[in-house]
Structures are given as C-alpha cells and as structure tokens.
Amino acid sequence: MEPVLAIVIGSLYAAGLYLMMRRNLVKLVIGLVLLSQAANLLIFTAAGLRSKHAPLVPPGEAQPVGDFADPLPQALILTAIVIGFGVIAFTLALFHRAYQVIGTDDLDEMRATDT
C-alpha cells in the first residue's frame, strides 16, 4: 500500500506545484488545495498503515482490544483539514475580490507592489 500512496502523494505535489507556477489565479488556488491535501496524505502514510481496526474502546473494556490503528495521525489530519478548509475558503474569497479590484487574473500583471 505504501508505494502506491507514495506515488499518489508525489503526483499530487507535482501537480500542485505545476499549477502554482502557472500565471492564473484559479490555477494557483487549485494548486494550493492539492498541496495541502498531499501534506495530509503524507502524514497519513508516514505515520504508518498498520491495522484495519479502529482505535475504539469496545463497551465493557478499559482499552482497545488487539492490534489497532494509531489515532494520533488521524486527529492531526482532521485538524489540518479543518484549518485547510478555513484557509482555502479565505483564499478563494480573497482571490475573487482581488480579481474584481485589479481586473485581471494574470499574476504577471500584479507588479504594482514589487520593485
């Protein structure tokens, strides 16, 4: 499973970075989404894909029985997804507004603040 996921993560990073290097605002935001999803998958894979069993405590027991998956990476990813959701929502709103104010979606034309 790991090699497959490694390839998927690599392709996501590649696609995300490629999109970000285009000059288009919309492609930029899609690239950002891909990048953060790739990072989430990376946590998921790097922390180990060990067991199929959920880390839940069955009724009447004090701790999970047998081999169980590590719950921490999942908690990390959940947090990262929620943060990513907020950030991407903001970015979309910002880019939309920027498009209205500046009147173009071409990143090469946004040079007023550079020097």
């Binding site: 950002l32 990376l42 946590i43 790097a46």
Partner: peptide
C-alpha cells in the same frame, strides 16, 4: 500557505520517524 504545507509535511514525517 506553501510554507505551512511544508511545515505540515515535516511534522508528519517527524511523527513517522
């Protein structure tokens, strides 16, 4: 955001190791 994604990836690998 790019740097955050890198940080997150680093945290993931660090936890894995």
């Amino acid at each position: 955001l790019i740097s955050s994604a890198m940080f997150l990836a680093g945290v993931g690998i660090l936890y894995g190791m």
